[in-house]
Design a protein around this nucleic acid. Sequence first.
DNA 1: AAGCATTGTCAACACTTGTACACTGAAATT
DNA 2: AATTTCAGTGTACAAGTGTTGACAATGCTT
Lengths: 228, 228
Amino acid sequence: MAGTEKKRGSATAAQAHEGTLITRGERKQRTRGTLLDAALKLMGEGRSFTSLGLREITREAGLVPTSFYRHFRDMDELGLALVEEGGLTLRRLLREARKDGMPVDDIIRGSVRVYLQYVREHHLQFLFIVGERMGGSAAIRRAIRTEVTHFTNEMAQDIQQLRLLPRELATNTLQMICGLVVSTMLNAAGDILDLPPKQAQLEHELIEQYVQQLRLVFLGATQWREKA
Amino acid sequence: MAGTEKKRGSATAAQAHEGTLITRGERKQRTRGTLLDAALKLMGEGRSFTSLGLREITREAGLVPTSFYRHFRDMDELGLALVEEGGLTLRRLLREARKDGMPVDDIIRGSVRVYLQYVREHHLQFLFIVGERMGGSAAIRRAIRTEVTHFTNEMAQDIQQLRLLPRELATNTLQMICGLVVSTMLNAAGDILDLPPKQAQLEHELIEQYVQQLRLVFLGATQWREKA
DNA sequence: AAGCATTGTCAACACTTGTACACTGAAATT
DNA sequence: AATTTCAGTGTACAAGTGTTGACAATGCTT
């Protein structure tokens, strides 16, 4: 599953003289990417991944149907590749947030703003993750769940290191809290991406609601006392 | 959409003498139900609604494909009927909870237990609602959202009447809180229904996590102060 | 009792789908 | 320079799809 790299090590005199580099494996990965992008694009047009067909995707990618098999055994395998890609996108979100640091005056509102901008920048990936998280095939749901759990744990770790919450919270508790935060934000992503365009008013209300929800969660977190 | 009742009022000598009542409209609604059940059953076997076909459903229902059109214009319309059915199931949940009253010693854990039992009793409906809430067709997502919003508002009303939270909370705030509660419980339903069977350990941990999350939310709610 | 309305059936249609197999051309290996 | 490997092509097929139209049976109306 991970490490489909072959070894492809030696790399003799491959990408030699012309501008467009041409080593074979690279070309392969490129059209593989074309397939993934085609799937995402179709989802962007309102289709759900589950309803996509192999032929539809190769058509969109400008390939002949049978080429599909050179890259994926079936649609489920392509879906798993998309999950992996999406997982990477999630990590990058945390990494960037960590680097930039959050606005200190209103951490939560700032975070939500940054988050939603990020969601929009990668809206196809989020469309896929949020849409298939509960509706997709068993294998894909499972994979997404794993990815989201990892994300949650990383977030918990970050919060601990940045001391954003009282540090007497047990690790389990912290994870539980982050689970709530993450599911809320995935929910938010789904709602926002589903909004009819150019509805600034509705959008603002939605955002404000999610800001409040997160405020509530963090308020609860600061008051939390471990059970007896 | 609502009120497909025709008038069917007069009801001459219809359900006359035999045990099985046979009035025409009744028969129709019965096979209509068979179609809905067939769709739900197929989902229960791991398929997602979006991936179901009209033929598949009539086959499962023991009908010929063309009969489908006597009841629904297309799959989307059947989906909307399922949403309506699901919405009804949600209301019943609130109604029963209201009637039974909650255990006073540990309201939250009790509620979660009752809720999850209810989810299991109607697992097909929840499978559908939770699964298509973010992944289905635009029309279906919209309908589910409406239904969930209504549910949320009813819940807010109940909480207010039962004085389960400090009554100085603004209506908006209360709805915001209930929104968080509802999305958390839908999330819970999705997780629980996706659990491999006979995994009592995992299940218990999951439940405990959701109990804690709701505790956190209510803790935050009792501490909430309206913004300036 | 006669006529109308409507649920369900049957046969057929034009497509689309996933997959198999043989083939081509060029990159990679020898 | 000769040979092997393999991403991408072309053709073909069996199976499944949504939809049409004409028809049968039976409940409902008058």
